[in-house]
């Protein structure tokens, strides 16, 4: 499934967890021999049943969890840096409650040692981009969940990563906010020309956002289907959710998911 000009290249990835409570049972294999590639500019949705290792996959890519076997390359290099080459947007926002919106957005830049003035300018650019101008001095608990996830997105984008990972970023917000955030995400991704891997439980969300939908099977996790979603670029300008072929792609994804669900 490798492609030329791959921004992300996952090859034969196997991930296991030790089970300290049952040392005799051996390690639990979460992901086995998983391979896929993401080309520059693609928006790949990863869909799969609970416990199929979607989140684990993202955690391994940003090196929060170790791979047992296999390689991960970003922009053709195994020596990529989390926070610089690849940034993860967390499901529960993952903002630091003691930092203001501005300080949260500038966090990745600060870790890279970017000078304060440049940090401020870049941070402001992305605060504006996600529509949070005027809330720079607020603390996370003072703004809504939807706005908190905008901060999470701005924090990731401010690092100008080659690859943006998103782990069910809209799972915790209400349905209306969620639809609005999805549309805005498409606009922002287009404006920043980002390459995205987006993990979700929602079939509609996967099809609406993705230029490609990967369906993962569970126990152990592997790629079960790779579905292109040719709904055209600039999808945020018109609501493709109103179109018949959107429903066709949703149906296709639903069938693929049904096939791997127990």
């Amino acid at each position: 499934m490798s492609r030329a000009n791959g921004m992300l290249e996952v090859s034969n990835l196997t991930v296991s967890f030790e089970r300290p409570e049952q040392p005799d049972a051996g390690a639990f294999r979460v992901v086995e021999d998983l391979s896929f590639g993401v080309a520059a500019g693609e928006f790949v949705s990863i869909l799969g049943p609970s416990g199929c290792g979607k989140t684990t996959l993202l955690r391994v890519i940003v090196r929060l969890a170790p791979a047992e076997h296999g390689t991960i390359k970003i922009d053709d290099s195994e020596k990529y840096a989390p926070g610089r080459d690849v940034c993860l947007v967390f499901q529960s926002y993952g903002l630091f409650p003691w930092r203001t919106v501005r300080e949260n957005v500038e966090f990745g830049l600060k870790m890279q040692g970017v000078a304060a003035r440049e940090r401020r300018a870049t941070g402001q650019e992305f605060i504006d981009l996600v529509g949070l101008s005027g809330f720079e001095q607020h603390y996370p608990h003072q703004i809504s969940g939807g706005m908190q996830q905008r901060v999470g997105l701005a924090r990731a984008l401010a690092c100008r990563p080659k690859l943006l990972l998103m782990d069910e970023p809209f799972a915790a917000v209400d349905a209306q906010t969620r639809e609005r955030l999805q549309t805005e995400l498409l606009r922002i991704v287009a404006q920043t020309a980002s390459t995205v891997v987006f993990v979700t439980h929602s079939i509609q969300e996967a099809v609406y956002l993705g230029t490609r939908v990967l369906v993962m099977g569970a126990r152990p996790g592997r790629i079960a289907a790779d579905l292109p979603v040719p709904l055209g670029s600039e999808r945020w300008r018109r609501d493709v959710r109103l179109e018949r072929r959107f429903e066709d792609h949703v149906l296709e994804a639903r069938q693929a998911l049904r096939a791997v669900s127990p």
């Binding site: 940003v62 090196r63 929060l64 840096a81 989390p82 926070g83 610089r84 940034c87 993860l88 967390f90 993952g94 630091f96 966090f107 990745g108 870790m111 890279q112 924090r155 690092c159």
Partner: peptide, 9 residues
């Protein structure tokens, strides 16, 4: 929180 910081380098 510590993990998030690590994920941001």
């Amino acid at each position: 929180h510590a993990e998030i910081a690590q994920a941001y380098g």
